[in-house]
Simulated scan of single mutants.
Amino acid sequence: MASTQQRYMRRGVTKIYFVKTIQAATNIPTRQELTAGTDLSRQISDIEGWSLENSPIETPDLGAKFATSIPGEDKAANSSLTFYEDLTADVVETLLSKDVTGYVCILRKGDVPASKSLDIFPVRVGSRAPSYSTGAEPAKFKVSFSISDLPTLDAPVPAAAAG
């Protein structure tokens, strides 16, 4: 008997924050650190990367025609966020200028305390470039990030602030 799976669309659910500092060695933010960050979700038009990839090492041997492999080094995929440009403000451009460091926190299933769906990527902004077009589409710019340390994946979303 198959169990029921509640599928969902990321748009309108997933949240992305940029957090300048996280004190814990685990890179898991407290609720206060997360809310002190900037919620970028409403400005993002596209997202690329934000995952780990493994480069397998081939281990062929003389006794078999089949070439086996073992896991090799992990590395982060090229990661970027594309934003809608604001005609009158430059909040995101200032926040994510070249060489800025911080953490991109992705709450995959939304802001659901204790859900193990928080991915934290230590980052450094590599570039920020406008996307020029003559088409009838909104103005955008793309920010490319270098993942500067091992991401923390599947962390629990911090408990909501006591109210």
Rank of each mutant, 00 (worst) to 15 (best):
D111K: 08
E93L: 04
W50E: 04
D90N: 14
A114E: 14
R42G: 04
P158M: 13
S51V: 01
S41V: 02
T68P: 00
D46Y: 06
Y17L: 03
Y132P: 00
Y103E: 09
S41E: 05
G12F: 04
G63A: 02
E33Q: 15
Y103L: 10
Q23A: 15
P158G: 13
T59P: 00
Q23H: 12
K140D: 05
T35H: 04
L52E: 10
K98C: 01
M9V: 13
S51R: 10
R31C: 07
R7M: 08
T30W: 11
T26G: 03
P60S: 01
I16C: 06
S97L: 03
D154G: 13
A64C: 01
V91Q: 10
L150C: 05
D154W: 13
D46A: 15
S97K: 14
D74G: 01
T94G: 00
T68G: 11
T26C: 01
K98P: 00
T21L: 02
P56K: 02
K65L: 06
T68C: 00
R42S: 14
V19T: 12
V13M: 05
A24W: 03
E48Q: 10
A67L: 00
S133M: 09
D119A: 14
I147H: 09
V91C: 00
S117D: 15
E85N: 12
T21N: 14
R11G: 02
T30N: 08
G110Q: 08
P130G: 06
C105T: 05
D154Q: 15
G135F: 10
T82S: 05
M1R: 06
R10F: 04
S41Y: 05
E93I: 02
S51G: 06
T101L: 01
D119I: 11
I106R: 13
L62F: 08
L118M: 15
V100S: 11
V112M: 11
Q43T: 02
R11S: 07
F66A: 09
L62G: 00
P156G: 11
E93Y: 03
S51T: 03
T30Q: 09
D149S: 15
P29M: 09
T94H: 03
A24Q: 14
S131E: 15
D99T: 12
L150W: 09
I120R: 08
F121M: 12
I44V: 08
A136D: 15
P60R: 00
T59M: 09
I57L: 11
P130H: 06
Y8I: 02
T59A: 03
A24F: 07
K20S: 14
G63Y: 04
N54T: 06
A155L: 13
